[in-house]
Nucleic acid binder design. Structure first.
Length: 549
RNA sequence: AGGGGUGUCGCCAAGUGGUAAGGCCCCGGGUUUUGAUCCCGGUAUCGUAGGUUCGAAUCCUGCCACCCCUGCCA
């Protein structure tokens, strides 16, 4: 799983794995983890950290990992998301040992609720939303008990049954835990356990149920029913843990999963809130959840980011309880690392500038080059060369910055895999815009048989003007312009240049190959919009150490 | 009457009383017909103030900063 050039990376060993290793030495025989997405949206790169952690641990310790859909609230959930989540998990390289649904445990959960009521640990409350909020108190003042708190067990049982039977209006009654209205932990102030929802229908259970358990109620029991030993979740649930434990302790359940929290993955320029992503799609800022600029798993896949680049990133950033905001550079490093050794190289010119070789005799010739300088087993291709070519506009300059290694008037530059040329004349239009370069070439400098001893300033890529294939190339950037746009308004945060289209030319061999992605030399890694398409978009640029560019 | 969590190089992150790993970034240099890749080399006294100790990033005390919590979302 490690990338060839990154083989030094050590096996993961974080505080969670240390706990598990210790538990396996005595307390437990097997480790069972779970990844519990709510099927109300697409997975994004933030989820991949939890996926890699949970599935990775199961793999490393010979345990199991369950993909559990946390479908406890029908609002916003759909089967479409269920399907997409499964596909994304698989694409990332993981196969769940089991798939479960919290909704399939509704019957068992209902029984746990009854048990709590029977033990006087839960009650049916008739407070309306507003009043309940008011009576909960604030961060610094204690709450006050509901007037229904001392309702009799019989009445609670009766009312809860009525709720379940659909005899109660939505919002009229809820089931609450009876814990401590004065607890400094707000989660312990008699939290709601069940609420009534008549609409929409549950995507999986239809109209079987009209009462639904809250996250807090469902989580621990679903974990227990799934046989989970270590319930790994993100830091914001840290102060839910006392409730998680309380709910498990007050019911006759032998199995006791334990919750461990770790910090979320944040990446510069990636805004991962579901609300934000939904809005991008809804308002048409992107072409869909799988737009190649989206930070969703399917978006990254469309962009050409390989699964192992994502896994590599998750492994590299580690697992701790510290907030982490990873630099984009780190992400890009992993993407390049995954692509570097496996993509064929090719030449494409994105902003063409015509070059005419005035001393070239004949119509043209065919040159040869390996598909990859370090991987000869990838084979070689032929490329047509002729008297008219295109080079990149910014590979020529009349007023070059210091240390410029490209073409200047009167200067020499090597056309990669071909000849050294000299710029003899610059043709401009009325506006003074460079139109065309007239150059002469040196036949004795032909690549592979050059013993002229001539030295050029640098090397430049090119495409035959006659035989180059026209291609449409999209240069992609992040959707937001600020490294951290959380809390900003969408309008001001959006990057207006997230997709710039260029019309250019690629060497013909590119279109003759079935490869879905190439490295266009000196430009970056590019992926086809669709198989066989002549539309490409840039997955990531090459690292560029040219300072004044 | 608030509670919980976190503070080690620009970004991640090891380290758990014996004198600061590693990666990314950055800066030098080498190889190179991609200013790519690859290869060498360089860069921190641990939020802060005290204390304990022969010895502290690690133990104790105070302070400071940041994050989370007042949904019948997850």
């Amino acid at each position: 799983m490690l990338l060839p050039h990154l083989a030094t990376l050590q096996v993961p060993d974080d505080f969670i794995r240390k706990i598990i290793r210790k538990d396996l030495r005595g307390r437990l025989d097997e480790v069972v983890t779970r990844f519990p997405p709510e099927p109300n949206g697409y997975l994004h790169i933030g989820h991949s950290k939890a996926i890699c952690l949970n599935f990775g641990i199961a793999e490393e310790f010979g345990g199991r990992c369950v993909l559990r859909y946390d479908d406890t609230d029908p609002v916003g959930e759909s089967l479409e998301f269920v399907q997409a989540i499964k596909e994304d998990v698989n694409w990332l390289g993981f196969e769940p040992d089991a798939v479960s649904h919290a909704a399939d445990y509704f019957e068992a959960m209902y029984d746990f609720a009854l048990e709590l009521i029977e033990h006087d640990k839960a009650f049916v409350c008739s407070l309306d939303f507003e009043t309940m909020r008011e009576m909960r108190g604030t961060l610094t003042t204690p709450g006050r008990p509901s007037p229904d708190r001392e309702r009799s067990r019989e009445e609670n049982l009766e009312l809860f049954a009525a709720m379940r039977q659909g005899e109660v209006e939505e919002g009229a009654l809820v089931l609450r835990a009876k814990i401590d209205m004065a607890s400094p932990n707000l989660n312990m102030r008699d939290p709601v356990l069940y609420r009534i929802k008549r609409t929409p229908l549950h995507p999986r259970r239809g109209k079987d149920w009209c009462i639904y358990p809250t996250y807090d109620f469902a989580q621990g029991y679903a974990d227990a029913l799934d046989g989970v030993t270590h319930s790994l979740c993100t830091m914001e649930f840290d102060d839910h843990r006392p409730l998680y434990d309380w709910l498990l302790a007050n019911v006759s359940l032998a199995h006791r999963p334990c919750q461990i929290e770790f910090s979320r993955l944040n990446i510069e320029y990636f805004l991962l809130s579901k609300r934000f992503l939904q809005r991008l799609v809804r308002e048409g800022h992107v072409d869909g959840w799988d737009d190649p600029r989206m930070p969703t798993i399917c978006g990254l896949r469309a962009r050409g980011v390989p699964a192992d680049a994502i896994r590599e990133l998750c492994e590299r950033v580690g697992v701790t309880r510290q907030e982490q905001r990873i630099e984009l550079k780190m992400f890009n490093f992993c993407v390049r690392g995954a692509l570097e050794s496996r993509l064929r190289r090719a030449m494409a010119v994105i902003e063409p500038l015509k070059v005419v070789i005035v001393n070239y005799e004949g119509a043209g010739e065919v040159l040869h080059a390996d598909w990859h300088p370090q991987q000869p087993e990838l084979g070689a291709r032929e490329m047509p060369f002729g008297p008219e070519l295109y080079i990149e506009r910014d590979d020529f300059s009349e007023s070059p910055p210091p240390k410029y290694k490209r073409l200047v008037p009167g200067g020499l530059v090597r056309l990669r895999y071909a000849y050294i040329i000299r710029c003899d004349e610059v043709i401009k239009d009325d506006q003074g815009e460079v139109q065309e370069l007239r150059c002469s070439y040196f036949p004795e400098t032909k690549s592979g048989s050059d013993n002229s001893g001539m030295r050029s300033r640098g090397v430049v890529h090119w495409v035959s003007a006659d035989e180059g294939e026209s291609v449409e190339v999209a240069l992609l950037e992040e959707l937001i312009a600020e490294p951290d746009a959380s809390g900003q308004h969408l309008e001001s945060a959006m990057n207006p240049h997230s997709r710039e289209i260029c019309n250019g030319y690629a060497e013909p061999a590119v279109l003759a190959m079935p490869d879905t992605a190439f490295q266009f030399e000196r430009l970056g890694y590019f992926t086809r919009a669709k198989p066989g398409s002549r539309e490409f978009h840039r997955t990531v640029s090459l690292r560029d150490s040219f300072k004044t560019r």
